[in-house]
Design a protein around this nucleic acid. Structure first.
Lengths: 117, 117
DNA sequence: AAGGATTTGTACGTATGTATC
DNA sequence: TGATACATACGTACAAATCCT
């Protein structure tokens, strides 16, 4: 897939890149399980900085679209459309719960209470 | 409030700082509407880099704890996270799960799976 | 209204740590 | 052991939004 970056755009470069990758996945240009180019490589080919690529990767990881891990690279999540938002909602609840000092069991309990109402 | 950073800790500095601010808000040391020190200033007083402070501020903003805007600084949100934030995350997960045809049990299962990774 | 000061946002550069292969 | 690749942190510079005079 071809990614173009417009440095004159008011949209941030990392945002342009993230959008391009999102689109590539949605369009099927990038398949589930497929690994994206290493950040340094992609940065070099696009003429941008590694940080900028890593920031885009991190954003997509937070969305649940990518699995990004040290030494492994960025791999497109193997989930069906719709499951991305599910895993993101799961991740958010876990993050919020733990931030407030809740155990996994307590988070489950909160889920049950929320389901009653 | 006093913030201490342990550079030898395995916990990332920006994470330590974010946790310290969260704790300060929770403990009432920092009140709603109060403005945090400029990133550069706080960075200098803690002996860390501006980026590190900004990353902590951005994380807290994503959590909804802070309003961070150019020229204005970082202001503590008037709504206290906690129950409100938790119930919102619960509601979102339930909504997303049911939209995708999951039962409550299946949502619990998704939560467990998310907790593993 | 205009301009300067303040403050975060983004981007680039570089170095080191850590997990994976 | 070594190579690969992301994670974090520090440094610097400029842009953009806001505030104040």
């Amino acid at each position: 897939m071809l990614i173009r970056i417009d440095p004159t755009s008011s949209v941030a470069i990392y945002d342009q890149l993230a959008a391009a990758i999102r689109g590539g996945v949605a369009a099927g240009d990038i398949r589930a399980g497929q690994r994206l180019p290493p950040a340094r490589e992609l940065a070099a080919s696009l003429g941008i900085n590694v940080h900028t690529v890593l920031k885009a990767y991190a954003a997509l990881r937070d969305e649940g679209l990518l699995h990004v891990r040290r030494g492994r690279g960025a791999v497109v999540t193997d989930v069906r459309p719709g499951e991305v938002e599910l895993s993101r909602a799961v991740a958010e609840l876990l993050a919020v719960g733990r931030r407030n000092g809740l155990s996994l069991t307590q988070i489950h309990h909160a889920l049950d209470q929320g389901a009653e109402s």
